[in-house]
């Protein structure tokens, strides 16, 4: 891990990966969209609304995945003072917040025709809303202090405390009675969803993940440059 601590080395690897990630993202999202909208069947119960699942479920996976990513980066920042860890957490947070928001909105858009309601205060939906607020809090704390490192520390502590919410979201459908359907893909006895719907879902999921990786690199590059801009302007102020 520490071999990547040097931003120059990170930037070299990131720049080499970026074109491949971009191509992979576009390809997966293109194929995934085609399969989700044209090449997959309507559900025998849900009809065409099942197509909402192909954006709802990957968004939810990403919202959880990115939060865990931020929590791990925060731990690296607090324990080892890894210089890239805060940069990674800061770059990832708005992407995760966006996916958490999309999960809530697309879930509502599916819930209205299928459950007959936009929203219920049950365990799965409420814990997802809490995740969205955790993201907002994390973003706010990162920029809340004049001295940047203080904000980063506070945000890292919030991210680590909030990670308790992740297993709660995942298992909320098993622990409490809820309107939300239980897991049908990531379960011990294998997926229960039909392959004609599983494949478009998995390809969309991969596309979303690659999208995150691509955007993360772009945003981390920005963040590293911003740090260099700050350092250079300070040096010039001192010299003037």
């Amino acid at each position: 891990m520490h071999r990547f601590a040097n931003p120059a080395r990170f930037l070299r690897i990131a720049n080499a990966l970026l074109p491949w990630l971009t191509v992979g993202t576009v390809a997966c999202l293109g194929i995934g969209l085609y399969m989700a909208l044209f090449a997959s069947p309507p559900d025998y119960q849900q009809g065409e609304t099942v197509r909402i699942m192909y954006v709802h479920v990957p968004s939810a996976w990403m919202a959880l995945f990115i939060y865990v990513f931020i929590a791990i980066a925060s731990a690296c920042s607090l324990i080892w003072r890894h210089p890239l860890a805060d940069v990674a957490a800061k770059a990832a947070s708005p992407i995760g917040a966006g996916f958490a928001f999309l999960t809530l909105v697309t879930g509502s858009l599916w819930g209205e025709p299928m459950w007959g309601t936009w929203w219920v205060w049950d365990a799965r939906l409420t814990s997802m809303l809490v995740l969205f607020f955790l993201y907002l809090g994390h973003m706010a704390l990162m920029g809340a202090f004049e001295e940047q490192s203080r904000g980063y520390r506070a945000a890292a502590v919030l991210a680590l405390v909030g990670v308790i919410n992740i297993p709660i979201i995942k298992f909320s459908v098993d622990w409490w009675s809820t309107l939300h359907q239980p897991a049908s893909v990531i379960r011990l006895d294998g997926p229960t969803i039909d392959p004609s719907m599983l494949w478009p879902l998995l390809i969309m999921g991969l596309g979303f993940k690659l999208f995150f990786a691509t955007l993360l690199i772009v945003r981390m590059k920005s963040e590293l440059m911003a740090a260099r801009v700050r350092a250079l302007s300070l040096a010039q102020l001192r010299n003037a």
């Binding site: 197509r51 966006g98 697309t106």
Partner: peptide
């Protein structure tokens, strides 16, 4: 979309818009 256009298309539209 089998009568569900007002639910399906905004879902895809918002996702695309955000990304």
């Amino acid at each position: 979309m089998g009568g569900y256009a007002v639910y399906v298309w905004p879902s895809y539209g918002l996702t695309a818009l955000f990304m």
